[in-house]
Simulated assay, not measured.
Amino acid sequence: MSIELNILDWFQTLHTPFLDKLMVFITSLGNAGIIWIMMTIVFLLIPKMRKTGAIMAAALIIDLLLCNVILKNLVARTRPYDVNTGVQLLVSRLHDYSFPSGHTAAAFASVTALYLAGEKKLWKPVLVLACLIGISRLYLYVHYPTDVLGGALAGAISGYLGYRFIQAIFYRIKQKREGCAKSEE
């Protein structure tokens, strides 16, 4: 853990008023998954994007269960600012556990969902934002590096599982429609 604290302490050497405001803003985009939820709702409202929206919704629900219900409580890792109490926080103290980073997990669940849904123009900028959110969590001293890596992995797994789940549902719907069409002949 000392290596991880050394990495976080190195991030503390990068602080400037501009970067402080930027990182607080970037991390706020991931608060409660709001940006990903809003994106999902927009996609669900656009008929040709509906399947992508369904994949994102499934990915985010799986991510919520995997990260916030299972992993955080199972691992029960103390946040770095509770270990190094001398750090001045730029964001409010959090009341849940540190591993995995929920902000990072939701971001990577969304990236993976977009990538697997074939959204070639969307997944790349979302990947950049996801990486920036992960970095912001380190900069702000609210997560260890392994929390962010664990969040990215959990998010990617959630995105994949969400994609597979929706693919299975769409396959069954297609099978039923084809079965109904054959019976009408």
Results as ranks from 00 to 15, higher is better:
residue 7 I to P: 12
residue 11 F to G: 04
residue 11 F to S: 02
residue 12 Q to V: 01
residue 12 Q to A: 09
residue 14 L to T: 04
residue 14 L to D: 02
residue 15 H to D: 07
residue 17 P to H: 10
residue 18 F to S: 13
residue 18 F to R: 11
residue 19 L to P: 01
residue 23 M to F: 14
residue 24 V to Y: 07
residue 26 I to D: 08
residue 26 I to R: 06
residue 27 T to S: 15
residue 27 T to N: 04
residue 31 N to Y: 01
residue 33 G to S: 03
residue 33 G to A: 01
residue 35 I to R: 01
residue 36 W to H: 00
residue 36 W to F: 06
residue 37 I to F: 02
residue 38 M to N: 01
residue 38 M to S: 12
residue 45 L to F: 13
residue 46 I to E: 10
residue 47 P to G: 07
residue 49 M to T: 09
residue 52 T to C: 06
residue 55 I to F: 11
residue 55 I to V: 15
residue 57 A to V: 08
residue 58 A to D: 06
residue 61 I to A: 06
residue 67 C to H: 00
residue 74 L to Y: 13
residue 79 R to F: 13
residue 80 P to F: 13
residue 83 V to S: 14
residue 86 G to N: 14
residue 91 V to H: 04
residue 93 R to A: 13
residue 96 D to L: 01
residue 103 H to K: 04
residue 103 H to I: 03
residue 104 T to G: 07
residue 107 A to G: 07
residue 109 A to K: 09
residue 115 Y to F: 15
residue 116 L to H: 08
residue 117 A to R: 12
residue 119 E to T: 06
residue 120 K to L: 13
residue 124 K to R: 15
residue 127 L to I: 02
residue 127 L to C: 11
residue 129 L to T: 08
residue 132 L to P: 11
residue 135 I to L: 15
residue 137 R to Y: 09
residue 137 R to M: 08
residue 139 Y to A: 05
residue 142 V to K: 10
residue 143 H to D: 00
residue 143 H to Y: 07
residue 145 P to R: 05
residue 148 V to G: 00
residue 148 V to I: 07
residue 150 G to S: 05
residue 154 A to L: 03
residue 156 A to K: 04
residue 158 S to A: 13
residue 160 Y to D: 08
residue 164 R to A: 14
residue 166 I to G: 04
residue 168 A to L: 11
residue 173 I to A: 11
residue 179 G to W: 13
residue 180 C to R: 15
residue 181 A to R: 15
residue 185 E to V: 14
